[in-house]
Design a protein around this nucleic acid. Structure first.
Lengths: 75, 75
DNA sequence: ATGTGACTGTGAGTCCGTT
DNA sequence: AAACGGACTCACAGTCACA
């Protein structure tokens, strides 16, 4: 699984726990709604600056975001 | 502190523990040597795909990389 | 409410070199 | 060994009409 898809899945999962629509998340993160779609579906290769905005909009942080089984299988 | 600088500092710290030069890390991560300089000094806004290569070259993973005080101060 | 294809401007990433 | 600079290509940020 590509890093883009793992990140997209993680964002989707966190968004669901917050009961947010893509549109609501996009608004909080100050990005376009269709951009969230692209990220969640793994089509976008995000930079850390934009990823930070999305993570903060999910009321999380980098440490928590990547503290997930999907990000421990490497090394 | 910007996310770029926090990531740069983390890469620098991990690289030091591995006793790698920027050039050696660049070679392992398959990126340009001047790019590592830019990332470590916080001037570059890396994409997650390249960040993954650097993290793997540091023989780490995303979960461990971001499991650091510098990435827990947000939220 | 989510997904796709296409578009433009800017910056990611490379390659040459110098300090 | 590390930082920096210029010039370059191509991909990402950001947006839209449409499905």
């Amino acid at each position: 699984m590509s890093i883009n898809k793992r990140i997209g899945n993680r964002i989707l999962a966190l968004r669901k726990t917050q009961n947010l629509s893509q549109e609501a998340l996009a608004h909080k993160a100050n990005v376009d709604r269709t951009y969230i779609t692209g990220v969640e579906t793994g089509k976008r290769n995000v930079t850390v600056r934009v990823l930070e905005r999305i993570i903060l909009a999910l009321e999380s942080n980098f440490a928590t975001f990547f503290n997930d089984k999907a990000f421990q299988d490497e090394k």
